[in-house]
């Protein structure tokens, strides 16, 4: 009796599983849009993930025969994997480092990623000049009173040496100077924000979409952070989101990149997510 019951259950499970499988296949096969087909794989920057997820969905809806898979892993993972040829697209927040220059990678700048300096909400300081920012990041200034704030020790909270955000700030703000090691390192934008919101006298930087009500955003070099100021070239804290391909892209990969760069996508999704469309930048 018991045995029969189990058999019945197993049979039912098998049936439903195969039914699922078949509908799954059917969905794929009954594509409407002929022409493009294939698989696109991408990996890399987690900062670009929230942007590429909607792109992936929209693109797959329009091209039923194409499967797009996008993984995180970090900027260097992305560049490494695309250089090896294990993915089609490597997403990165940073410019191509020296050791990747001879790998035949083609750079596609798809979006502008603004950064902001944030402090805890009690901090009276509103603005940092570039020189003040450099002095704080290198550990030369260690008290807020030296930049017009109250007499309070500065606690620098930022990202690890392998972070793309850190590389961007290094390039845009510090240049050849180097960060002080007397800092607290968090491993994500969200963690930096949380730590700063709870630590009096702290300062750090995050991707602009992460700066919410729990922290105070500083103006940089006298310029408030907003999209227009970046487009006008006044607010300098930004980097580009890159999608690298090995050689010029073709077929489905090219179509996907074209879609991400299209006005339709750039104007609808990009700004909504706190990035700035790359086509609006005056070069």
């Amino acid at each position: 009796m018991f045995f029969k019951k189990t058999m019945l259950l197993a049979g039912a499970a098998l049936l439903s599983a195969s039914a699922l499988l078949f509908t799954g296949c059917g969905g794929g096969a009954a594509g409407t849009d002929a022409g493009l087909s294939g698989k696109i794989s991408a990996s890399g920057s987690t900062a670009l993930l929230p942007l590429l997820k909607p792109a992936q969905e929209e693109f797959q809806n329009a091209n039923k025969n194409v499967t797009v898979s996008i993984a995180g892993g970090g900027s260097f993972t992305g560049m490494n994997q695309v250089a090896e040829g294990s993915v089609d697209i490597g997403n990165s927040d940073v410019d191509l480092p020296e050791e990747y220059k001879d790998k035949g990678l083609v750079d596609h700048k798809v979006v502008v990623e603004p950064f902001v300096f944030i402090v805890d909400k009690e901090n009276p300081v509103k603005n940092l000049t570039k020189q003040q920012a450099i002095d704080i990041l290198t550990g030369k200034i260690t008290n807020w009173k030296d930049v017009g704030g109250s007499d309070q020790k500065i606690t620098l909270i930022h990202r690890a040496k392998s972070s793309g955000s850190r590389a961007t700030i290094q390039a845009v703000v510090l240049g050849s100077a180097s960060f002080t090691d007397d800092a607290i390192i968090q491993d994500s934008n969200g963690a930096v924000r949380t730590a700063i919101s709870t630590t009096p006298g702290s300062i750090g930087y995050v991707d602009a979409p992460y700066a919410d009500d729990s922290v105070k955003v500083l103006a940089y070099d006298g310029v408030e952070f907003n999209a227009q100021n970046i487009i006008d070239g006044k607010y300098m804290l930004y980097g580009y989101g890159h999608m690298y391909t090995k050689g010029e892209p073709t077929g489905a990969v090219k179509a996907f990149l074209d879609y991400v760069l299209s006005d339709a996508f750039q104007n609808s999704q990009v700004e909504k997510l706190g990035f700035i469309p790359v086509n609006k930048m005056k070069k």
Binding site: T46, G73, G74, S75, F76, T77, M79, N80, E99, A160, K161, S162, S163, G164, I185, D187
Partner: peptide
């Protein structure tokens, strides 16, 4: 290890 491995290329000295 946990802070840096995510963005560190596999196989590099780092």
């Amino acid at each position: 290890i946990v802070v840096e491995m995510g963005n560190t290329p596999f196989g590099s000295a780092w």
